[in-house]
């Protein structure tokens, strides 16, 4: 479980410390306030540490190994022209520092780099062990329809696609889990399958299909785009990526979905967060926020399990407000805009 993320001079953030809850974490903020940057930096560090553990010749963490692999991962996730572009040039500071503290302190990692860094970071704190499970990064768009060509293409060509998409494809291609955990998987996946009207399957031809009872397999490109996002989620649960423990970084879960499906997505995020998955969501949707609030009210005693963050643009860069309840945040642009619209309606009514 990620406990805190500290950023100094990293992209839009001059100085920010985010304290995460073990369960559900929700980040709000205007476009360009850095929500995705937060998800990506935490994801890159954790994903790299999980990747190293799965290398054929797995080695203990060393500074030499980490300083290159972490820099490489950051570049592949953010795709800047060079690593140093991620260090902000504000406030005269030329060095950017990032540190991640985990519940298990042997995972703690800190690194820094300058605006001139190309391919290496400096390791300021070396973890003594690797992450034992790959984190999941859910992008705004679905990937099931691209799965069959994207992975082979990426492995044989130099393409600038953000690597979290490739990582996600790998997780989607994992095999479904068999055994005692199947019952729990079925419970989690059932509401998603109800909404999709079928089950996600990976055919031998390397393509995903929606298997609809009585109708056979429907090609994924023929399934509604919003439902394909649910299909990705269902697949990640059945393959164990989102089961028992792990991390889910989810960028705008509401994208492409109607409110009926947003309600389902909120349920899924909330339920996963209660099953040991640390969920970090970035959202623009007041509807999604309200769904999450309703779910936590029903569950009660959720304050310690949840954390809300508002990213606020200021002349000195982006500042972070945070608290264990949505009303701890002073800046909620998405709420203020709704109310401003109501005011305009009342002036005309």
């Amino acid at each position: 479980m990620l406990k805190t993320l500290e950023l100094k001079n990293f992209t839009l953030f001059p100085d920010a410390t985010l304290s995460f809850a073990p369960g559900l974490n929700v980040i709000v903020g205007e476009n360009g306030a850095g929500k995705s940057h937060l998800l990506k930096v935490a994801y890159a560090a954790i994903a790299n540490a999980a990747q190293q553990a799965n290398e054929p010749t797995v080695a203990e963490p060393t500074k030499t190994l980490l300083q290159k692999s972490l820099a490489d991962k950051l570049v592949k996730v953010f795709r800047p022209e060079s690593l140093g572009r991620l260090a902000s040039r504000r406030q005269g500071g030329h060095r950017c520092q990032v540190s991640l503290a985990f519940e298990k302190s042997s995972l703690d990692t800190a690194f820094s780099f300058s605006t001139r860094s190309q391919s290496e970071v400096q390791i300021d704190r070396l973890p003594s062990v690797w992450q034992d499970k790959a984190p999941v990064f859910m992008p705004t768009r679905e990937l099931l329809t691209q799965y069959h060509w994207l992975l082979p293409f990426y492995e044989s060509h130099y393409v600038d696609i953000e690597e979290q998409h490739i990582d996600l494809c790998k997780l989607l291609g994992a095999l479904a889990i068999k055994g005692p955990r199947e019952k729990k998987i079925a419970e989690l996946v059932a509401p998603l399958e109800d909404a999709m009207g079928g089950r996600v399957v990976l055919d031998k031809n390397g393509r995903f299909y929606l298997r609809i009872p009585g109708q056979g397999n429907l090609e994924m490109p023929l399934v509604a785009e919003g439902l394909r996002k649910l299909a990705m989620l269902a697949r990640l649960i059945t393959t164990g990526s989102l089961l028992d423990k792990g991390y889910l970084f989810w960028d705008e879960p509401e994208a492409n979905l109607n409110p009926k499906l947003i309600k389902l997505v909120a349920w899924a995020a909330f339920t996963l967060s209660q099953q040991g998955i640390q969920v970090v969501i970035a959202t623009h949707s007041l509807f999604l926020l309200k769904e999450l609030e309703l779910l936590s009210r029903e569950a009660e005693g959720m304050e310690a399990q949840q954390r809300y963050f508002s990213l606020v643009k200021t002349p000195d860069g982006v500042q972070v407000e945070q608290g264990s309840r949505i009303d701890d945040l002073q800046t909620l642009v998405l709420l203020d805009e709704e109310l401003a619209q109501s005011d305009r309606h009342m002036e005309l009514a």
Partner: peptide, 28 residues
């Protein structure tokens, strides 16, 4: 008491939930 000419998109001019959240934020 809200204006009495609702429309489909604005069944009430202000959603009381939104206003309640705003007041909670300001008056906690």
């Amino acid at each position: 008491e809200q204006p009495q000419n609702p429309s489909r998109l604005f069944p009430t001019s202000v959603n009381p939930d939104n206003l309640r959240l705003k007041l909670r934020q300001l008056l906690k």
